[in-house]
C-alpha cells in the first residue's frame, strides 16, 4: 500500500534522508522509532508533499501510484493523512469551519458531492464525543490556545472524519495524559481495517501497547537500520538505540 524505495532527500543543502526503504502493506500498522533528529518527521513531510524539501532520488508509491509529483492536496484526496507532531494554529478560522472545509475540499477533488450541513454536524458531533472533544472547543479558532494534548486529540478527530486510506501519526502520543492516550488509541484502532494502513512514529512502547504494530522499524541518520516484529520495540525500550546504531554504522 505504501512503498518507499531508496529515498534520498535534503533541505538547504543538508542531506536528511539517505536511501530509506520501507513497505507497509494494506491492513498493517508499521511503527518507526529512532533517536531525535534521525529524520522521522522529515520522512512524514516528504511523503505528504511539503515543498521545501528536495527529493534527490527514490520513489514513494501509494497504492502503486508514484505520488512524489503530486501537490499535497491531491495526495490528501487520494487518502493520505498526516497527524502532525506540531499541529499548526490558524487564527480566526473556527475548528468547525476548518473541518468542514477540509472534508468538502477532498470530496470535490474526488468529484463527490458536498456534505449537507446537517449531515456534517451529525458526523462531527459523534466523532468528537468519542474522542472527548467538547463542542465548545470546536467553536474556537483552529489550534489557537489549545493545550498540547488537545491539539493531538484534534489531529485524530480530523483523521476520523477524513477516513484516509493511509495514516501517518507523528508522535501523536506525546503530550497526552494517560486517559487521553487510551481514548486516542481507541480512535486509531477503530479505523484499522483490511484496506487501511498506518505508519506510527513514536518514542515509547506505551503507545504500542494500545496500538499493536505488525512491524517495527528503527530509523537512524535518514535510513531504516533494523526491522522486526513487535518484540523489537520491547528490546529498544530495554537497551536503547546505542548498540543497534553502532552495529549499523
Amino acid at each position: 500500500m505504501l512503498e518507499i524505495r531508496n529515498l534520498h532527500a535534503e533541505i538547504d543543502g543538508k542531506k536528511i534522508l539517505n536511501g530509506l526503504t520501507l513497505s507497509v502493506p494494506a491492513g498493517e500498522v508499521a511503527a518507526i522509532m529512532g533517536p531525535n533528529g534521525s529524520g522521522k518527521s522529515t520522512l512524514s513531510y516528504i511523503v505528504a508533499g511539503r515543498s521545501d524539501y528536495t527529493v534527490t532520488a527514490g520513489e514513494v508509491l501509494l497504492n502503486g501510484e508514484d505520488i512524489l509529483k503530486l501537490p499535497p492536496h491531491e495526495r490528501a484526496a487520494r487518502g493520505l493523512f498526516l497527524a502532525f507532531q506540531y499541529p499548526v494554529e490558524i487564527p480566526g478560522v473556527t475548528t468547525h469551519t476548518f473541518l468542514r472545509t477540509a472534508m468538502n475540499a477532498q470530496r470535490k477533488t474526488r468529484g463527490e458531492e458536498e456534505l449537507k450541513t446537517a449531515d456534517f454536524i451529525k458526523i462531527m458531533r459523534a466523532a468528537a464525543d468519542k474522542l472527548s472533544i467538547s463542542q465548545e472547543m470546536l467553536r474556537r479558532p483552529l489550534n489557537v490556545g489549545f493545550s498540547g494534548g488537545e491539539k493531538k486529540r484534534l489531529e485524530v478527530l480530523q483523521m476520523t472524519l477524513l477516513e484516509p486510506r493511509f495514516g501517518i501519526l507523528d508522535e501523536t502520543d506525546s503530550g497526552l495524559d494517560i486517559d487521553a492516550l487510551r481514548v486516542v488509541s481507541d480512535g486509531v484502532n477503530a479505523l484499522r481495517s483490511k484496506e487501511r494502513g498506518f505508519l506510527v512514529i513514536t518514542h515509547y512502547q506505551r503507545l504500542l501497547d494500545y496500538i499493536k504494530p505488525d512491524s517495527v522499524h528503527v530509523m537512524s541518520n535518514g535510513r531504516i537500520i533494523k526491522s522486526g516484529g513487535p518484540d523489537l520495540a520491547l528490546e529498544l525500550e530495554k537497551h536503547g538505540y546505542r548498540d543497534i546504531v553502532a552495529n549499523a554504522a
Partner: peptide, 22 residues
Amino acid sequence: QLFYCMQRGLSAEEATALIVNG
C-alpha cells in the same frame, strides 16, 4: 499554515482564502 491546510485537502488558493478569511 499553507502546508497544514493543503495536507487536509485544500489547494494552495483555497488555503490562502481560508487563512485570509480568518
